[in-house]
Design a protein around this nucleic acid. Sequence first.
DNA 1: AGAACTGCCTGACTGC
DNA 2: TGCAGTCAGGCAGTTC
Length: 285
Amino acid sequence: MPELPEVETVREGLSRWVTNRRVEAVEVRHPRAIRRHLAGAEHFAAVLAGRTILAACRRGKYLWLPLDSGDAVIGHLGMSGQLLVRPAGTADEIHLRIRFTFDDGGPELRFVDQRTFGGLSVSEGGATLPSEIAHIARDPMDPEFSDAGFVAAVRRRRTEIKRALLDQTLISGVGNIYADEALWRARLHGARPTDALTGPAITRLLGHVRDVLGEALKQGGTSFDALYVNVNGESGYFDRELNVYGREGLPCRHCGALVRREAFMNRSSFSCPRCQPRPRTPAPG
DNA sequence: AGAACTGCCTGACTGC
DNA sequence: TGCAGTCAGGCAGTTC
């Protein structure tokens, strides 16, 4: 599953392989892979044909490609999306949704997505920062991310700390997996009320978030083949060294207690019952 | 406005 | 073996 480290690796790959190339044509194989574009797939393709990609940028888990027209292509990988750079003529992937060809005849850019939770869209005038994703907060690896601003925003909220970590308007790039890992390192249960956490506690948690993302980014960077701008999400997932996520019933690496799994937002949270005791008072709401 | 909930998708897996 | 049900996940949209 592509999260911040994977998306950043994809961005680096796109920067290397598609920057300064001129799009010849765009083929949309699956209309659902085009988002927020009422004019339809044909119009989407027409707007992009002949445009040159100037860069590859990222905000949280979103990517965007500024074009020489001043517009931008926005991309989100969702759960299962991949952006692949493949030599022209390579056999189509089963879940190939969108194909970009370039007038230099070089490798194609392909959006491949099994579940089509992800997709591409065009942002008019969005080369600098598409308005569609302006609500997404900076990620904690961003030099302009404000630690103090994040701490203050979290303490103003009346919710649970894990929900706050997953709120992309507070901090971006953190998903279910990294939220659980950071909370485990901080020895905090995800149901802890945000407004009862001290500033130093939130600062410590933020440091763990940064560590987890940074370590995963290092690992993600090493496992990528140079020709591919993304890999199979599953292989990346299983390669990670996770301490609690997916380890239900296995011993906690801090204390040996058995990792528990709890229902959370129609999915799962993993934590150590001893290191991360549930708060005594439930969060408001 | 903030918080919570739902729908979007399909392949892998589980249990009967 | 086959089938139905469950799970995985981020985010846009909606509701309160």
